[in-house]
Design a protein around this nucleic acid. Structure first.
Lengths: 241, 241
DNA sequence: TCACGTCTGTACGGCGCCACACATATCTTT
DNA sequence: AAAGATATGTGTGGCGCCGTACAGACGTGA
């Protein structure tokens, strides 16, 4: 399943390495990210940035009472740690490994220096950030207007795109945490999808049997976000099928 | 009420003008923004950026079926048109004048050139963008977890901060559009606040009588967003009381 | 194999918001 | 002063999600 480690597995990193950025190649660490690992804590400082290859990272916004919701996901199309070069020094959200896998890691200062040189590296990172902003905005509206089932479909599709696979390891409980809803709500929605033969799951393993149908049940948010990523980062096709 | 036009009325612009940016001073146009004017349409290109002084601009995300929700507001603390320098060329949200007033306008290319010089201008603009991202993330979570009344309080407070006033001109219908809820829901929430002597409104004019109480009824989202703006843009104090 | 932990299914009452309908109040225009 | 437009108040029924509780199904490890 897992091939030889290769920075090209992350499309953003791949695009960055075309230019002078490649001098950083020796500084890239290939590391394993277990499910549930917290990479950034809300309000904490950033020591590294991450370029996921086979993993997916969730950006969670946690509230005072503990309730949370996912505001964006980062997979093999992007980079985790944008607030580093945006200037905040700290991140305002928690970053959790949503799907176990691998990522390349880079010391924060190195990326920062490279960003501050300006040029194509900076431009690409900012374009990616713009795409991430779109995802966050869409999530905000989605939370307001769409049903749990629609959001579950959107979430599954976004995850699949970042795994280049048709199945993922994820309990309903965890999905509910991401979406900021009850576990039972996810169970019901997933049950409907399963009865209609769209997905198949058991104890933390979800297989998508009919992707087209899943897209149909999803709200528009999925395709809007995907379209914006494709538009802003055309060189990075392969984000999705 | 209205004093002589002065770029310092916008705190971000004020901070920018300290350095080399001041060469752009002659290119700033002071313009009037009537209520409801659409400055950017979703998917459109950006000809100008705006620095509101006495106006407030809403960033609305509109969906296919026409339903919408506000994802952020821009007032005298910031700039409208960040996607210009983020690289998208187009904006993914609609920008509507939520509170009539004035703003300074600058040709897009001029700001873009200045941004691309790097240095303090770029850093400041990126820090502001980071604060805006926080606002969007908080909005996403707020949409998921908080009641209409809490959100109404948050919305009123954010608006007040950007007007340096204790009243605003805004019908309940418009507020409902911003929050992405029914007008009746706003009526009920506002009615409760009025009965308790916290606010006073009539036909599009809302006066806040007891700001402390309003903050207490609001969800935490207001103060989190405010704290983040203060943290990232300390030079720009005066954003709120 | 048995006990235990984890994951999933189901049910009940309740609340918040929805869509829709309509009544009332206030301002504007003529 | 009358007529119209705009803004706000109220009600009814319904749906979706919540909080809670509990039962079964499936894995894992002793």
């Amino acid at each position: 399943m897992m091939t030889v480690a290769n920075p090209k597995q992350n499309h953003l990193l791949d695009a960055l390495l075309i230019g002078e950025f490649s001098r950083l190649l020796p500084n890239l660490e290939h590391i394993e990210l277990p499910l549930g690992k917290v990479l950034y804590e809300s309000g904490g400082t950033l020591d590294h940035v991450y370029f996921p290859t086979t993993s997916i990272i969730s950006l969670l916004y946690v509230m005072e009472n503990g309730a949370a919701a996912e505001i964006a996901v980062v997979g093999n199309e992007g980079i985790l740690g944008i607030s580093l070069f945006m200037g905040g020094e700290t991140t305002s959200s928690r970053a959790v490994v949503q799907s176990a896998g691998y990522a390349y890691r880079l010391k924060a200062q190195l990326l920062k220096d490279e960003f501050n040189r300006g040029g194509p590296v900076q431009r690409l990172l900012l374009r990616y950030t713009q795409a991430l902003i779109t995802q966050m905005a869409q999530t905000a509206v989605c939370n307001r207007h769409h049903t749990v089932e629609q959001q579950l479909c959107r979430w599954l599709l976004l995850s699949l795109d970042r795994l280049a696979s048709d199945e993922l390891t994820m309990t309903q409980e965890l999905i509910a945490n991401m979406l900021g809803v009850r576990r039972e709500g996810v169970t019901e929605a997933a049950g409907r999808l399963q009865r209609e033969g769209i997905i198949n799951y058991s104890r933390g393993h979800i297989a998508v049997l009919n992707r087209k149908a899943l897209e149909k049940r999803s709200c528009e948010c999925y395709k809007v976000v995907k379209a914006e990523f494709d538009r802003l980062l055309p060189a990075l096709h392969g984000i999705a099928t």
